[in-house]
Nucleic acid binder design. Structure first.
Length: 590
DNA sequence: GCCGTTTTCGGCCCGACTGTTTTCAGTCG
């Protein structure tokens, strides 16, 4: 069972407790339900497989997993099932747990719909629900009505249409359009995109927007009239939600400007950060909400977030860190890291020009000189060209010949830049496949043409953790290799990354001056943020690259920086923040 | 069921919105 399946199982158990009249009358039952949901949450967000943690006897290290759930998971991995779970879910129709995927349907509605509409089997449950709604079978159930039936029909269709989360850059663009529209209304005093978008997670669920205004009604009306909307989901006094084409949901929250600090804080999340923050505040007899901070029945207001956090005795916490992963404790000690910024970047070492060579994978569309001009505009001090290695069918002599030409071209460009008195240095690199056997897809004598190499995985993503780790370590061993490119090989919404023993990879990188790439491609953002955090903790050097295949991609650097910041990286952790002189030194040292 | 810089017992974030009723339950973030 993988993590998502285990999380779903725990959620199902929580739901079973929720609808069970025997247990739900116990006073502590609500908290048991929450505990199962918390454990499910934690497991969903884990980077390592629960199975691997179990192998290493580390289940208890998962937050929200205590003795009881750890024992159940132990039973699961030993016997393939959990007796106690089977018992409490025994009388419940399996379809119920599928129906719960529909927004607006929780445990109780799911059970009633399942029983009263005769939808029992998990397979095809959503289709049957659509059928029932379309034929007006839901409106007559007690506690349901015509509105709810319509609601359910739309939600279930949305959930089927939208199984994928938005990639960060796409979400950014959609959000910017809505913000632009909202700013046309004179009542909008301040506006910010918040939620996971502000925290810069690799994929975004909903788009959250906050507005400061003293005309909440008018602002919400304006929002509800957004011309691109498919549907108005809800509209209240202080919040409203829209559905855009493609199943993109936009949530708006409005408050007077005096509340804006608390509003930003509340709406940025994450949920776990907020819960931890409120739990801490309660100990100080303070109660937090999106309006402000209540103390002894009196509420205090904050126009900005800095003041809000200060009132709690802590430094302002950058949104990227708000995941309840130690940031609150450090903010109290005034010891938060100073995160790397886009302006710190001095070069980009992974880009593909259109240099004519028969590469193993897709080539770039712009010539080297175009990239150089862009880089000068970005105030970079150095860049590196890393076209893919040539096709494996190419003869050794031809490979050497082509790569010598590329080397000469790069040198010529360096000369030209010098003559024009432009301070940009060109490095000549290559992105080389690590073949399934661990060999590099380049003949040894061709390495002499290169300043450095990136190695990466482009095929054979399956295979055991041990085998893949061995493959990567062998691939990294060549002295010209500096960078491990898009390390997990994941494609967001599309393909999981390879399984690797990161302790071993990071240890090797640390000892042999290898750098782990954060690849800024929108559908990669690879290294993932959680692994970046692990690398930073160990002192492993990161490099943020764009993997540009055309010059416009260079601006994607900011997304890679977001990942680095979510990994708690400071300037010192990222090698392409170094000046040219320092960078050359580290590039050539072993 | 989980958890500990007030606690190994006794707490557990907080408030919003909707639909269906008529004072609230269910759901969500």
């Amino acid at each position: 069972m993988n993590n998502l399946e285990i999380a779903k199982l725990l959620r199902s158990v929580a739901a079973a407790y929720q609808v069970n009249p025997a247990t739900s009358s116990e006073p502590t039952s609500h908290f048991r339900i929450v505990a199962y949901q918390n454990a499910a949450d934690a497991i969903e967000h884990l980077t390592s497989e629960v199975k691997d943690l179990w192998d290493d006897d580390k289940l208890r290290e998962i937050p929200g997993v205590g003795n009881t759930i750890a024992d159940y998971l132990d039973e699961l991995f030993k016997t393939g099932k959990i007796k106690h779970f089977e018992e409490i879910m025994h009388d419940l129709p399996p379809a119920m747990f599928e129906l719960m995927d529909v927004p607006g349907i929780g445990a109780k509605r799911a059970l009633r719909l399942s029983r009263e509409l005769g939808i029992t089997r998990a397979h095809g449950a959503l289709e049957k629900l659509i059928h029932a709604a379309e034929h007006g079978h839901i409106r007559n159930l007690e506690g349901f009505g015509e509105q709810l039936e319509k609601e359910i029909l739309l939600s279930v269709k949305t959930v089927k249409e939208r199984s994928k989360r938005l990639l960060l850059p796409f979400a950014t663009i959609v959000a910017e359009e809505v913000v632009e529209y909202m700013q046309k209304h004179p009542g909008v005093e301040k506006i910010e995109t918040l939620g996971s978008l502000r925290r810069r997670t690799a994929t975004v669920g909903d788009i959250d927007i906050a507005v400061a205004t003293n005309k909440p009604k008018e602002v919400i009306e304006h929002f509800a009239a957004y011309p691109k909307k498919n549907k108005l989901i809800e509209k209240g006094d202080s919040t409203s939600s829209l559905l855009l084409p493609g199943g993109v949901q936009v949530d708006l929250m409005v408050q007077p400007a005096q509340y804006f600090g608390a509003l930003l804080q509340h709406f940025t999340g994450s949920k776990h950060h907020n819960i931890a923050l409120r739990t801490y505040a309660l100990k100080k007899k303070l109660s937090l909400s999106e309006r402000g901070i209540k103390s002894g029945g009196r509420i205090e207001y904050f126009e900005n977030e800095e003041a809000f956090y200060k009132r709690l005795g802590m430094d302002w916490i950058p949104p990227e860190l708000r995941e309840n992963d130690g940031e609150i404790e450090l903010a109290l000690l005034h010891q938060l890291p100073k995160l790397v910024e886009l302006e710190d970047i001095k070069g980009d070492l992974h880009m593909h020009s259109n240099f004519p060579q028969e590469t193993s994978h897709d080539a770039g569309t712009n010539q080297m000189e175009d990239y150089a001009n862009m880089a000068v505009g970005l105030n970079y001090e150095y860049i590196g060209f890393t076209e893919h290695n040539l096709k494996s069918s190419t003869s050794e002599a031809k490979v050497l010949d082509v790569l010598k030409q590329k080397q000469e071209l790069a040198e010529k460009l360096n000369l030209k830049l010098k003559i024009e008195n432009l301070k940009l240095c060109i490095f000549n690199g290559l992105e080389i496949d690590i073949t399934p056997s661990g060999k590099l897809a380049l003949p040894e004598n061709a390495f002499t043409t290169l300043d450095y190499a990136i190695v990466s995985l482009h095929s054979s993503f399956r295979g055991t953790k041990a085998d893949q780790t061995k493959r990567v370590l062998e691939g990294l061993a060549h002295p010209k290799v500096r960078i491990f490119g898009h390390p997990t090989g994941r494609k967001l919404n599309n393909r999981e990354g390879v399984e690797l023993d990161w302790d071993k990879i990071f240890d090797y990188a640390l000892k042999h001056n290898k750098w782990i790439e954060i690849n800024s491609s929108p559908d990669r953002l690879d290294l993932p943020d959680t692994l970046a955090r692990q690398a930073v903790k160990l002192g492993v050097k990161l490099i943020v690259d764009t993997d540009s295949h055309e010059i416009s991609w260079l601006s994607g650097m900011r997304y890679g920086i977001s990942v680095a910041r979510r990994g708690w990286a400071e300037k010192k952790d990222v090698v392409n923040t170094l000046s040219l002189q320092e960078f050359e030194k580290i590039l050539h040292s072993t």
